[in-house]
């Protein structure tokens, strides 16, 4: 069953077609990789799905319900989380506070009561523990290493218990040891029932982690399926190696 269904998604920037009649699907419970050469429209797909930029045409539905026209905060509230390419965290908030910002509360009164309820703090600390970040809980985001920021961003997105998480280059600029840790944590979160869609350039990372792969070329999917199958697809080889 597909959790996220994208139909005929199209976006042009001036005369350039960034995403063109693009209709990939993300199966519930999968770790789906969205790959493709630079400029093939991967991040644009993310920005369109999460409501950061308006689409020209096409539609996106999540759990068989359309999310067209909703803003990023509403889409997040429905259960689609995302990370950014260069690990965006709040630099002047501590790691723990970074974890608490996404926590959702209902009602106006709850909004004006304490910044961290004890059960929220407990959950945040558990997540920091899970990511091996508990030692830096009180450190400002801006003072963390790049790898720690990547992990923190992933953890923070998880705090609102999304069902689908879009990861923009989770392996980008990360050393091999940390890469393994990030891959491992994604796998373990997936085992808890969270579906992932990730954009990534590191092919071995994608091939090891993903259960499904979609290849974009010039804003259009040219192949999809199991990693082993996609890897040997002539159209894919052509897109990556050809002109």
């Amino acid at each position: 069953m597909s959790l996220l269904k994208i139909e005929s998604l199209t976006k042009r920037f001036g005369g350039v077609g960034a995403v063109d009649d693009c209709s990939p699907e993300v199966a519930s419970g999968s770790i789906t990789g969205l790959i493709g050469p630079n400029g093939s429209g991967k991040t644009t797909v993310f920005n369109l799905v999460t409501g950061f930029i308006p689409k020209d045409s096409g539609s996106v539905s999540f759990k068989a319900r359309t999310i067209d026209g909703l803003g990023p905060d509403r889409i997040y509230a429905l259960g689609i989380g995302r990370t950014f390419q260069l690990a965006r965290i709040f630099p002047r908030l501590t790691a723990l506070e970074n974890m608490l910002v996404p926590v959702r509360r209902k009602g106006l009164r709850a909004l004006f009561s304490g910044a961290a309820w004890s059960h929220e703090k407990e959950r945040a600390m558990e997540m920091l523990e899970f990511l091996d970040l508990s030692l830096v809980a009180k450190t400002l985001g801006g003072e963390l290493s790049y790898g720690q920021r990547k992990l923190l961003e992933l953890g923070a997105v998880m705090m609102a218990e999304p069902e689908l998480v879009l990861l923009d280059e989770p392996a980008g600029g990360v050393n091999p040891a940390l890469l393994e840790r990030i891959g491992d944590r994604i796998r373990r979160l997936n085992a808890r029932g969270i579906t992932f869609l990730l954009v990534e350039h590191n092919m071995s990372f994608v091939m090891n982690l993903c259960s499904e792969v979609v290849v974009l070329h010039r804003g259009r999917p040219i192949a999809s399926g199991r990693p082993a199958h996609v890897r040997s697809d002539p159209a894919v080889l052509d897109a990556y190696l050809g002109a």
């Binding site: 950061f52 905060d73 997040y76 965006r88 709040f90 910002v101 996404p102 923070a156």
Partner: peptide
């Protein structure tokens, strides 16, 4: 405070 630090990021994690 999150908005002060990074408004788009705040929006992405559900801050209205």
């Amino acid at each position: 405070l999150a908005i002060r630090d990074d408004e788009d990021k705040a929006l992405a994690v559900g801050v209205p």
